[in-house]
C-alpha cells in the first residue's frame, strides 16, 4: 500500500550549506488496512516521511510509492487520500465553513450544505462557522482539518499529530471515528507523541530515530508482559517488605515491583497485616518504555521460544 525504500532527504542549511539529514535511509512498508503509527523524538523524521509519502517533499534519493504510484503534487491517486497537517497551514482568510467547503470541493465532487453542516456540528464548530480561520484557536483549526479529512470517507488517511490542541471530549470522539474508519477498511498512517493514544489505536508501529527506522513491527510485539515481575499497589501502613523493588510512595499509597518468587510471601503478608491491596498484576511493558529502551539502545527486538518477537532489555 505505502512503501518507502532507502529514502534519504538532505537539507542544505546555513551559510556554508551544511547538509542536515532529515531522513537517512528510511525503509517502511505500510500494508493495506493497517493503522500504522510513526513514533519518534522531535526531529526524528516523522513529518518529513509523511511529506515524502504525499509528494510534498522530493527525496534526495530512494523510492516512495502509494498504491503502486509515485506521489506527485495533486495527483489523481489523492482522490481517496486525506491529510491532516501538523501545523495549521490553512487558508486563514476563509471562514470555518468556507474552508471546510473549499477543501472538500477540491476532491472534485459537489458537497451538499447538509454534509458540511453535519460535519461542523459533529465537531462542535457549528456556532463558529462564520469565524475566519485567522481568528480561530489552534484546536478549532485542527477541527476544521479533521472535518475536511473525514467528509469524503477516504481509503488512506495521513494524520500528523491529529489530537494536538484538541479538548479531551473531541479527542475521545475523534478516536472513535478513527476506529470506525479503520474497521471499514481504511489505511491510516499517524504521527503522534502521545504514545498511550497509539497503544489504543494502532496495530503496527515504526519507531524512528535520526531519520531511520529503529523498529517496525506489530504493536503487540512491543507491548510484552514480564513473566517474572508483578506490579503491586497497596496502602503500606509503614510496612514495606525488603524484596519489593522500585518503591514509590504517594501519601499512604505504595507502588512497587514484586519478584514472582516472592508472590506467596507478599500475599501472606497482606493477609496477615490487613493491608489494603489495590493492584497486583504482571508488569506490562508499555509502548513508552519500549520506545525509550529501543531509542536509547538499551533494548532490542528478539524472537522468543514461541517464535514471537518481543522487546528484551539488555
Amino acid at each position: 500500500m505505502i512503501v518507502a525504500e532507502d529514502v534519504h532527504v538532505h537539507f542544505p542549511t546555513g551559510l556554508f550549506r551544511r547538509r542536515v539529514r532529515a531522513l537517512d535511509g528510511l525503509t517502511l512498508d505500510v500494508r493495506d488496512g493497517d493503522f500504522f503509527a510513526l513514533v519518534g523524538q522531535n526531529g526524528a523524521g516523522k513529518s518529513t516521511a509523511m511529506y515524502c509519502f504525499l509528494g510534498l517533499l522530493r527525496p534526495t534519493s530512494g523510492k516512495v510509492q502509494i498504491m503502486g504510484q509515485s506521489p506527485e503534487l495533486g495527483a489523481r491517486l489523492y482522490k481517496n487520500v486525506a491529510y491532516l497537517p501538523e501545523e495549521p497551514h490553512y487558508h486563514l482568510y476563509l471562514t470555518v465553513e468556507e474552508a471546510t467547503r473549499y477543501y472538500s470541493s477540491l476532491y472534485g465532487k459537489r458537497v451538499s450544505d447538509k454534509t458540511i453542516d453535519d460535519s461542523l456540528e459533529r465537531l462542535g464548530l457549528a456556532q463558529f462557522k462564520t469565524l475566519p480561520l485567522a481568528k480561530c484557536s489552534k484546536g478549532m483549526k485542527q477541527k476544521v482539518g479533521i472535518a475536511q479529512c473525514l467528509i469524503h470517507e477516504p481509503q488512506v488517511l495521513f494524520l500528523d499529530e491529529p489530537t494536538r490542541g484538541l479538548d479531551p471530549l473531541i479527542v475521545r470522539e475523534f478516536r472513535e471515528t478513527l476506529r470506525e474508519i479503520h474497521q471499514r477498511g481504511a489505511t491510516i498512517v499517524m504521527n503522534s507523541h502521545v504514545l498511550s493514544e497509539i497503544e489504543m489505536l494502532a496495530n503496527r508501529v515504526a519507531i524512528l530515530d535520526r531519520g531511520k527506522v529503529v523498529v517496525q513491527d506489530e504493536l503487540q510485539n512491543l507491548l510484552t508482559l514480564n513473566q517474572e515481575l508483578y506490579r503491586v499497589v497497596f496502602e503500606g501502613n509503614g510496612v514495606v517488605p525488603e524484596y519489593l523493588t522500585a518503591v514509590e510512595r504517594t501519601g499512604h499509597l505504595v507502588r512497587a515491583f514484586l519478584p514472582k518468587a516472592r508472590l506467596c510471601d507478599f500475599v501472606e503478608l497482606v493477609r496477615a497485616s490487613g493491608m489494603l491491596l489495590h493492584e497486583c498484576s504482571l508488569k506490562k511493558t508499555s509502548l513508552e518504555e519500549s520506545f525509550f529502551n529501543l531509542v536509547k539502545g538499551e533494548a532490542t527486538l528478539t524472537e522468543n521460544a514461541g517464535g514471537n518477537r518481543e522487546v528484551s532489555v539488555s
Binding site: 503534487l73 495533486g74 487558508h91 477540491l106 475536511q148
Partner: peptide, 18 residues
C-alpha cells in the same frame, strides 16, 4: 509563504489547475 498549498496539492488538484 503561508504554505497552505499543502492543503491543495494533497488532494486531486494539480498545480496546472491551481
Amino acid at each position: 509563504r503561508n504554505r497552505n498549498l499543502k492543503m491543495v496539492f494533497t488532494k486531486p488538484c494539480s498545480p496546472e489547475l491551481w
